[in-house]
Each structure stands twice: as C-alpha cells, then as structure tokens.
Amino acid sequence: MDDRAAWEAVGDWYHAWFTGTVLVAVSRRGPAEAAELVFRVFRRQQQQTFLAGLAKLGIDGLPPAVAAARYHYLSNFIGGVGVEYVEESPRKAWIRYPPPRWVWPGATICGIPSEVNAAMLRGWHANNGVMLGRLGLGFVCTGQTVDGDPGLEGYYIEHDRDLAEEERLRFAKHERMPRFDPSQAPSLPSAEWPAERVAKAKRGYAMEYARTVMQEAVALWGAEAGGRLLGQAARLVAMQHYHATAASLGVTGFAEFLVALAVAEGDASDAVMQPDGSVILTRSRLSLLRGVGDPHPAMLAAWSELLVGSLAAHDRFARIEPMGPLSWRIIAGT
C-alpha cells in the first residue's frame, strides 16, 4: 500500500467525521448551537497554530494583512484545500476558497446554515489582528459558498484605528475579489516542504479538525451529551465511508482494515486470531488524542463508534467488544 494513498484515506476518514459532527449538531441541536461549536473549534485551532504557523512558514515578519492572508493561503494549500490569494497592498490582501469547498464536501454543503459557516470566520479570521497585537486588522467577507456565492472570499484590511470586537468581521457582498493569478501567489520553500512532508501534513490537517471538535463538543455540551453526539456522527460516518476507505487502504478483511487504518495514522497495531475463532485487535496508542491533556473517556468512547459503524457496514451480524482502552475482540457473525 502506498503511504501517501493511505495518509490521504485517513485524512478523508477524519474529515468526514468532523463534517458529520457539525451536521449532527445542526440537525439535533439547531443552527445556533452548531455555530457555537464551529466557533469554538476554529478559535481553538487558531490559538494553537496561528502564531507558530506564521514562523514555520517564514511569513511572521510581513505586514499584518499580508501575513494573515498568506497564512491562510499556504496552510490551506498544504492541507489540500483549494485556495486563492490576491495582494492589493501591504494593508489589504484577499483570500478565496473556490468551490468545491473542502470543509463542507459534496452535498454536505446543503446542510450548513449561513450562521454556521460565518462562525468559522468569527472564530479565526476576525481574531487574527488580536493574535498579532494589531487591533486595527479586520476581515471583510464578500461571499459565502453556503449562501450560493461562487466561493468563500474576503480580504484582510488594516485600519488606522483599533477595531471594536464587533467590527473585526463585517460582510460586504457588493465587493468582489480580483481575478487570481497563480504566478503571483506565495509558494512554499521546496527544500523545506518536500512532497512527503506535505502529504503527512494533509493527514494531520484533517485529524486536527477531528481532535478539536471532540474536545469542544465535550466542553460545550458535557461528556454525556457531547460524547453521544460525537458517537452518533462517528457511527453514521463509518457506515457510509467504510467500503471506500477499505478500498483506498487496499484491504478486504475487517481486522485487516483496522490495522491498516491505525498504521496509516502512525500507530502500531496488530490482530491476533484466538482459538475460539475471534480476533483480538490492539493499538499501541491513539494518535488522534495526541496532545489532549487527560482526555475524557467520552472521547475514546465516541471514537470507538467508528469501529462499530465500520463493522456494521462490513458484516451486520458480527460483533466488536471492548477488552480494554485500546483493545477489542471481534466476533464473527453467524
């Protein structure tokens, strides 16, 4: 199995869980609560990665508007997200995410209310000036794909005065981003970002969204309700994506699938046949929870629903039973 193909399969798998969680929140808890979840996800992501990412990309010394827009262009490019960039001046720079939108793939976009998508901008884009210590920096959104516009677009602009919190994000649909010229776009230093590093970064990009939404769902709704919502999304997504993911990983057996998935995530795993015909599956760790201090058991329980949903799609008569935190028994159906 090609490593890059396996990493891409993992990225798609966890991307689907993130998106599914947002959709379950919209349908079960309503747009307002789903928007709060998305806001929290993107604000946490920003606080954890934005400033360090500027330095890693070598753009931390640029003017605030340019640095902010280039960060979104380059980081999303690394993550495999379609993105465009136009720099009008040192104080004004555009960013655009053309369709198809990565974050809301396929028909998923039809279930995302405008306020839920805007929460992403409130959580991250509107707060870049605060993170940079430049309170005059704001973001102007000129279109949202979920509203039927031809892409999510807008520009960072640095004002001559500090902006109040409610001024840091505004909407101006009468404006339009100039045409994108790829030859004028910023690029990654090829020596520092070889193809293998970019491929791993794409996997990590999607896994980080799943990791963050797990934490924020539990923090927002509590372990019981938040864990239940995460688990609902995990089971549904796994049933829908199991066959395609197994094919991408080049496997057909269920235990083989779980081992291949774990290895593609960067974790050691094995499956051992037992005398009674069952299979004991173990993992060395769960990379998805790496960096999460003292993860709540509800998070692991929700993640385990990915296994339950996968097995339901593989063989609805088979069973999977937990044997420990990272150990399960798979019992064939009769």
Rank of each mutant, 00 (worst) to 15 (best):
L163Q: 13
Q46K: 13
F139E: 13
A313K: 06
D3H: 09
A271G: 00
G253S: 13
V198E: 07
G82W: 01
S310Y: 00
S183W: 05
V10C: 01
T108W: 03
S183E: 11
E87Y: 01
G133C: 03
A206F: 03
G293L: 11
I78D: 10
H72L: 05
E192D: 15
R290D: 15
A201Y: 04
P189I: 10
A185L: 00
V38R: 06
Y71C: 09
A246S: 10
F171R: 15
P113T: 02
D162H: 05
Y71T: 10
G250K: 03
G136P: 10
L230A: 12
G80A: 04
R197I: 12
W94K: 00
P189W: 02
A25I: 01
S75N: 02
G151D: 04
T282S: 08
A52P: 07
Q232N: 06
V130F: 07
R203L: 13
T252V: 13
G148V: 08
V140L: 09
R285C: 03
C141N: 15
A5R: 13
P150D: 12
L307G: 00
I330N: 05
G231P: 09
D12L: 06
R96A: 04
H243E: 15
L258A: 12
D160V: 09
L163C: 13
G266R: 03
I157D: 10
V146R: 03
V83G: 09
A318T: 07
L286V: 12
A67H: 05
W124A: 15
R285D: 00
G136V: 06
G58I: 00
Y209H: 11
V10F: 03
P178R: 03
I78H: 10
G129Y: 01
E175V: 05
S284L: 06
Y156D: 09
C141H: 01
K202I: 06
R91A: 10
W193I: 14
S75L: 01
A302F: 05
P31W: 00
L74N: 07
G151F: 04
S310A: 10
P31S: 02
M120D: 13
A238K: 01
L300W: 11
R211Y: 14
A55Q: 15
A191R: 08
R168E: 12
D12E: 05
A255M: 02
G253F: 12
V259C: 14
A301N: 02
V130N: 10
D267S: 08
I330A: 06
C141G: 13
L229M: 14
P295R: 02
G154N: 00
G111W: 07
D60H: 12
A5P: 03
A67R: 06
R122E: 14
A172C: 08
A69D: 11
K56T: 08
A67N: 08
